[in-house]
Design a protein around this nucleic acid. Structure first.
Lengths: 97, 97
DNA sequence: CAGGATCCTACCGGATACTG
DNA sequence: CAGTATCCGGTAGGATCCTG
């Protein structure tokens, strides 16, 4: 369900609130439109993300986590915690060697 | 670091204690020897798992988590919790439809 | 028992160009 | 803006066989 290179990052980004397609592109460094599009479709299929087309001009699309998607928050949070600590350790290694 | 199809399962299995190669094969349904071998090597390279060759006959090899590997426990635990709940939801869907 | 060596295939993921 | 279409290479990962 979270397979692929970008899904975790996407969910992480959406956990801060609704976002439009372009905002996600800007927010997630390195992702290409095609990848974002494909990953979002899979996330929607799995019921983790809700897609809403806004009738603006030109049209914009909002993405947000569903309740189901938010249920992953504990996992994502733990990953964030670990990543932070991990980076600290790397820096410590660099400065001590 | 946790890339690949099996690393999470391997760490999960090792979180219950040391295990030999065959025990891991038996414990992780569906994994082939080659895959287990490759994933374990990567885990060892990343310092998450410690490999110990026991001079029995024939030789056996013990794998265990390092302290670093155990630092992932909160993440794995949260995943386990989520997976359990997820399965409950699936079953509920099946019985109500 | 614990694995390496080979072979093979699907699909992951990037670049680019195009559309309503 | 928010995608889709197309092309393409690399590699993840499975099956099978072999070895100390």
């Amino acid at each position: 369900m979270l397979s692929g290179k970008w899904k975790i990052r996407i969910i992480g980004s959406l956990s801060f609130g609704k976002k439009r397609f372009m905002e996600l592109i800007a927010n997630i460094e390195g992702i290409a439109a095609k990848m974002l599009s494909k990953e979002l479709q899979e996330l929607e299929l799995n019921g983790l993300v809700k897609r809403t087309v806004l009738e603006t001009k030109p049209i914009t699309v909002q993405y947000e986590l569903t309740g189901y998607g938010r249920s992953l928050k504990p996992i994502i949070d733990e990953m964030a915690v670990w990543g932070k600590q991990h980076r600290k350790n790397i820096i410590k290694e660099m400065t001590t060697s």
